[in-house]
Design a protein around this nucleic acid. Structure first.
Lengths: 137, 137
DNA sequence: CCAATTCCTACTTTTTTAATATGAATTATG
DNA sequence: CATAATTCATATTAAAAAAGTAGGAATTGG
């Protein structure tokens, strides 16, 4: 019931890059060094973020990544949805719902947790993370 | 970021047993059949619940399990703590906290999510699940 | 005694996670 | 144009966790 490294590394990388400023292109090699992460693995994660529309990649010398839009418009939920899939504490399937016990668990637990966590993740933006980060530098 | 079968099956088994009434001893074979779960696997899960003080096992013919205390005094958090360990969305370690980016993530995301989920799981008791279940039978 | 049950634990299988490895494609710069 | 720095793409491997099976010992009511 843990977040995977994809989500964690991805957010760390994004905050690192976003902190360099709007439209600033930052190379992953730098970010990987600062965050002490494997460049190769981080490339994979940023490939997902690019395909998911969170960042834009710029190839070639002096290339790198930048945010695809304003950091206050990218929620943590957007990021995690790309890297981990939609948050949901359990896998749902129609048949399960037939059973009354499972229906009770869904109604009173799983649905509620999903709702709470998702709405929280929607409230937090990359911008809020960057500002908190800068406050602590 | 999913709950494992231990937590899910455990809760299903507990609701099934608790629904038979306070101090009623229910055999796992029956519960496994009703919930369509492997008896052998469910035994392992109930072994954990017994060692965790959630249920009491009664050996021999007409044996089975019953809740160790009132169903309104057992929170879902208690159950999941036994079966899955304490809920925490990421693994913490001292070194991580040194880095400012990770510190920001912990403060604004992980700590908050843990707090929210844990306090919610504390509000929900086995009793509340059983009552919801009975309502839907 | 016997059958139903919990209790115990070792083993196996499957799935997921986390990486590593390798190389192609692109591009600024000297 | 050659080179080096970069993204982009994909295959492979290694390690860990999850899920389940297997088999039998211990207990107990009838």
């Amino acid at each position: 019931m843990k977040l995977s490294t994809k989500g964690r590394y991805g957010l760390r990388g994004l905050v690192d890059i976003a902190a360099y400023g709007e439209d600033e292109i930052v190379s992953l090699a730098q970010t990987a060094r600062r965050q002490k992460l494997s460049l190769n693995y981080l490339e994979q994660v940023f490939g997902m973020l690019r395909r998911g529309g969170i960042v834009i990649g710029v190839k070639g010398v002096n290339g790198g990544f930048k945010l695809a839009c304003d950091m206050d418009e990218i929620t943590v939920r957007d990021v995690l949805e790309v890297l981990e899939g939609e948050f949901s504490i359990v896998d749902r399937n129609e048949e399960d719902r037939q059973d009354s016990v499972q229906a009770a668990l869904e109604t009173l637990l799983w649905d509620e947790i999903d709702r709470k966590v998702n709405s929280f993740l929607e409230e937090r933006t990359l911008g809020s993370l960057v500002r908190e980060y800068r406050r602590n530098i």
